[in-house]
Nucleic acid binder design. Structure first.
Lengths: 253, 253
DNA sequence: CGGATGCAGAATGTATACAGGTCAATGCTC
DNA sequence: GAGCATTGACCTGTATACATTCTGCATCCG
């Protein structure tokens, strides 16, 4: 049996949160078979907490979209078709587009622009430093940070919340499919394009060009489409994507 | 004490669902003061179910956006600023725009077009039948139905789910602000415009004009903006909006 | 041999007991 | 009189016992 995550008894974190994190991890790592029922009692045994926190975690994960309610009761691990993943990315792109537009129309402070520019500068330097073997984990981190800054600039709690939901599906989040590029000879090319879009959207926001900012972010998300397309035809690429076990592949390994 | 809703002991519905519906009702009717903590034990007493179902309902309502987690534990009734309501409507419009675009790009069957057209025809007839005193509840019903059909035509579970979230805030749903018009002398005018947009978006989808379909739905949602603007300055209009008690008004009554 | 039926096991839905923490009011001291 | 410590009530987080429902399998009947 595999212990799920560090079950360090931090008193600061509630059992519910711990259960939620551990359960999400189990689902994403594919230790729970997709489509299968998630038994409360089994999770009690596996996670070392009682039924109540497990139950809370199950409800939250269902709302998050990783689990599905079984009509007769209980929950099962959700599976996603290729089409659903595409749509999830499209939704994320649309909402990020809205965020960029709102930021542009509203106008953002110089400090915010500078903050975002600094983040982009860090990415630029990362790409300059080593053109052949980029530190991808660092890139993913900075990329995620930039997207967060962007959402922040929209200054809308409601939109942030909705975007959080849209990115909850791990393979739909902004950086989820970046690692797929690492096996591609075009990696630097794609990364350059993505980074150029980052620069352009920031410029558009600064100039309050809402429509342009929106269009760029939409197109930006579609890079993920291409990466997904690539991953779907290559198992080794697919393995780099978190939660990929939940996707029903078109080609059986 | 006020009994929340019909507490008919239907065995077919679980206590959890009953608690969730009853609690939502309490929140939306303003029987629980906005910002105030929602005590589990008080709800146990008020709803007549035990803590476990109440707890589940609380978690679900928090995910739904009607409640807010208190850092030290428990939940409180969420309040919304005017700005947040505007943004919620904008998000809904954006997602409905995406739905319309997807439907158009994907192409929908004749049967689906006819289904939607029938719904619009029913609205047309409703408006023809009595130009001075329209049956608003019937209009709201048909309007909601058309919006559902539209989302259905996009044929995307993920998008439907996300839109459901976006419309969970009662004042952000497609028909929430329609009743505000009933007190307006321009009611028929606004209704005509809205209905024309319905016709246009359906035509655009039929002709697979994605960009146009999207633009129309976005603008369509902005009618709600206007109604909100009106309601915010007039308490009597505001009273017609479900969940309006959660909105921090700009003018104190 | 196929289908229906009944039973057993297990799983969830529900209720409640217990423990720890938080917040507010109160009383004491300076 | 004001500020601080203390106490107490309340509230949630957690665990577990009980009830009901569902499921799957075996057996029996047609």
């Amino acid at each position: 049996m595999i212990k799920a995550g560090e079950n360090g008894n931090d008193r600061s974190v509630t059992q519910t949160v711990r259960a939620q994190l551990a359960l999400r991890d189990l689902v994403l790592r594919g230790e729970l078979n997709p489509g299968e029922r998630v038994s409360e009692l089994q999770m009690v045994e596996r996670l070392g907490v009682s039924r109540t926190p497990v139950r809370s975690a199950l409800i939250r994960l269902e709302e998050e979209g990783l689990l599905e309610a079984i009509p007769s009761g209980g929950f099962s691990v959700k599976t996603f078709s290729e089409k659903e993943v595409f749509e999830a990315i499209e939704i994320r792109g649309t909402l990020e587009g809205l965020a960029a537009r709102l930021a542009a129309e509203r106008g953002v402070s110089r400090a915010e622009i500078r903050n975002a520019a600094n983040c982009l500068e860090a990415i630029d330097e990362l790409m300059r430093r080593d053109t052949t073997d980029i530190d991808l984990s660092r890139y993913v981190e900075l990329n995620a940070h930039f997207h967060e800054i962007l959402v922040g600039m929209a200054d809308s709690q409601a939109l942030a919340r909705q975007l959080e939901r849209a990115s909850a599906l791990p393979f739909a989040s902004p950086s989820a499919l970046v690692p797929v590029q690492s096996r591609s000879p075009e990696m630097n090319y794609i990364l350059s394009v993505a980074q150029d879009q980052h620069h352009c959207v920031l410029a558009a926001i600064e100039r309050r060009e809402g429509a342009r900012a929106e269009a760029i972010m939409r197109e930006h998300a579609r890079i993920a489409h291409r990466n997904l397309e690539r991953a779907l035809t290559n198992q080794r690429d697919m393995d780099l994507v978190p939660g990929s076990v939940l996707i029903k592949r078109r080609i059986r390994a």
